[in-house]
Structure formats: structure tokens, C-alpha cells
């Protein structure tokens, strides 16, 4: 399928997903309380920013955004003997 065919096929589906996100954000903002400093709300905002990128690995970047960091010294931190 070419880009136009994919757009035609997925337009309504993506539109619906954007609408769901918009409604969720509205729901949070209408409710009592301030989420400006909430780390999860900040993560969502950064995720939305990633969608505006022109790269073709947005899904991978969103996954990494919502992932805990990997520390390559974790086996030393756990005091685990490395196997051979």
C-alpha cells in the first residue's frame, strides 16, 4: 500500500484516537487539582510532542519515553556472580 492508501484506510481510526486523547486531557483539566508538576502528566505531554516529529521511529521513541532506564552495571549493583 502507498502512503495515500494507508492514510485513507486509517484516517478515521487515527482521528478517533486523537479525539480520545483530547477528551482525556480535557477530563483531567476540568477536574479538581493541578497536574502541572505531576510526572505522569508531564510524560504524556512529552509523548504527544514526540508524535509531531518527522522521524519514522515514533513508536519506538514513545516506548523508550515510557521505559525505566537500563543500567549496564546492574549485575554489580545486585552483587550477582556473572555466569560463564
Amino acid at each position: 500500500m502507498n502512503a495515500s492508501q494507508i492514510l485513507e484506510r486509517e484516517f478515521l481510526e487515527v482521528r478517533a484516537k486523537i479525539l480520545e486523547i483530547a477528551a482525556s486531557l480535557d477530563r483531567m483539566d476540568r477536574a479538581e487539582g493541578d497536574l502541572t508538576l505531576d510526572p505522569n502528566r508531564q510524560l504524556l505531554d512529552r509523548g504527544i510532542d514526540l508524535l509531531k516529529s518527522n522521524e519514522t521511529d515514533r513508536a519506538e521513541q514513545v516506548q523508550l519515553l515510557f521505559s525505566r532506564e537500563y543500567n549496564d552495571g546492574w549485575q554489580d549493583d545486585f552483587d550477582l556472580q556473572k555466569r560463564t
Partner: peptide
């Protein structure tokens, strides 16, 4: 799953790599 997947997968690959 979720936020633990990336870190956990890397840890698993580290452990597997140790088994020659």
C-alpha cells in the same frame, strides 16, 4: 511489561550472554 520491559529485556540479554 510496560515501563519494566526495556530494562528487563536488556538484563535478560546480559544474563544469557554470560552462558557460553
Amino acid at each position: 511489561h510496560l515501563a519494566d520491559k526495556y530494562q528487563g529485556t536488556r538484563m535478560i540479554l546480559d544474563m544469557l550472554a554470560g552462558h557460553t
